[in-house]
Amino acid sequence: MLRISVLFALFLMTQLVHAQTPKKPLRVGIAGMAHDHVHGILNKAFGKSGQTDIEIVGMAEPNRELAEKLAKRHGFSMSLVYPTVAEMLDKTKPEAVTDFGPIVDHKKTVAICAPRGIHVMVEKPLATTFADAKQMEALAKKHTIQLLTNYETTWYGSNHKAYALANTDKSIGDVRKIVVHDGHQGPKEIGVSKEFLDWLTDPVTNGAGALFDFGCYGANLSTWLMHNQRPLSVLAVTQQIKPDIYPKVDDEGTIILTYPKTQTIIQGSWNWPFGRKDMEVYGQTGYVFTVDGTKMRIRLKDDKSEQPAEATQADAPAADPFAYFAHLLHGETKPDELTSLENNMIVMEILDAARQSAKTGKVVKLN
């Protein structure tokens, strides 16, 4: 009996030690640094937050001047910077890569990382064409890697609370209409970097202008709220309200998606008077509006007027995309539908159809 008690005590001590041993930070490489969203991961990795989710082991950026500017701002060593993604992967052996280059380069990043078994998170949208997205999907499935798309609105507690009210609690009845507003005054107007502006306003490197830059948010959220149901049809209208500033791409884009019993209106714009990322979800018996990441307005069946509500960060799957990426790959959290490849393949089908619709002036029906 004594021997059994001692062994049991040793077992409990071993389990306690393992439980208290923190996970090692996820070894992350950065592919491209010409997207201004790169500041988010650099602030997290090299700032004073004391985070332990990720460790930046290498960065790939051919523009040495850009890399040096970012190194000076964020305080990292230029010894971490390599001229190509392939060299960075070979020298630093990351577990995962985050892509902050032009959208058109996402396919190249996946083509290099997937055969090495390296997981990839790209900034929204997934690709510039549905054809590229299908090739990326095939690579991810063949090599069994996670291929995620990061949207700022995924980390809004308000969106997840709205989803719960609409789909989990069924508080507003069957969803009938979704309206999503995203955008700002324009990338040049808000002062994005030259490196970012150069590719963001090019139809080849970005896919389109505001139509892709901000239309993707609504396509992502609508697909989520509709349980990854593909729409029956896509109609889009684009404008160049400021052709003197954005001569190559649209700066105004509206997309209408039809489902069997629901309609979604997506308004992506570089012409809003203020930056906005908000959503309206109407059901048969009520509605829920998200104002920002936390503030909401709700009116249910028996309410005489709408009521203010607040969401918290805890309503979202994680505090930020990089913590989520680390927790997901360490098996500490479940996949989130908003970042999932399944959702974002539908998003790319919608964006591709929207671009075609805007060009031809016709409704595109999805078979």
Rank of each mutant, 00 (worst) to 15 (best):
G331C: 10
P22L: 12
A96N: 06
R73S: 02
N343C: 03
G47P: 00
Q229D: 08
V38F: 06
L16I: 13
N228S: 08
K365T: 12
G215F: 00
I4F: 00
A319N: 05
T168E: 12
Q146C: 11
T128A: 04
V57D: 00
R73I: 04
Q20E: 06
D182S: 15
V57Y: 00
S158F: 02
G218R: 02
S233V: 09
I118C: 08
K93D: 08
A86Q: 15
F212K: 14
W199F: 08
H227F: 03
Q146K: 09
A326C: 07
G283I: 04
H330M: 02
H119C: 10
V363S: 13
V249C: 07
D36W: 15
A45D: 09
L328F: 15
F11C: 07
T262W: 00
Q267A: 11
A219M: 09
L232V: 09
R73E: 05
L211C: 10
K124P: 15
F274W: 13
L165F: 14
V288G: 15
A236L: 01
D250A: 04
L7Y: 12
K334M: 02
L12W: 15
K161L: 03
K141S: 05
V38S: 08
G218Q: 01
S305M: 07
V81H: 07
A236G: 08
F130P: 00
L89V: 03
G191S: 12
S269V: 01
G191I: 11
K261V: 14
K124R: 13
S222H: 05
E349I: 09
S5L: 10
V179M: 12
T238W: 01
V57W: 00
N43K: 12
E306Y: 06
A318Y: 00
V249I: 12
A319P: 01
H18N: 09
D90L: 03
A162M: 13
H181T: 11
C113Y: 10
R64W: 14
V175H: 04
A45S: 13
R27Q: 15
A316P: 04
P125N: 08
L70A: 07
Y287W: 10
Q15R: 15
L10S: 06
R3L: 03
V85G: 03
A131V: 10
Q229E: 14
T168A: 11
F100L: 11
L351Y: 01
K170H: 12
G275R: 14
P247L: 01
L351F: 02
A219C: 09
Y287L: 06
F322K: 13
K23F: 12
A71E: 09
A318D: 03
T333N: 01
V179E: 13
M88T: 04
I241P: 07
T109H: 11
E195K: 15
P102V: 07
M345S: 03
T149V: 15
N367W: 07
G101Y: 06
L139V: 12
F46A: 09
T312K: 14
V120S: 13
I298N: 01
A316K: 01
M78G: 15
Q313M: 00
P203T: 11
I346T: 07
I145L: 10
E332V: 05
T98L: 14
A162F: 06
A210W: 12
A166N: 07
D174G: 04
L42W: 11
T201L: 04
P115G: 06
V175G: 13
L66D: 08
T144D: 03
F11K: 05
H181S: 11
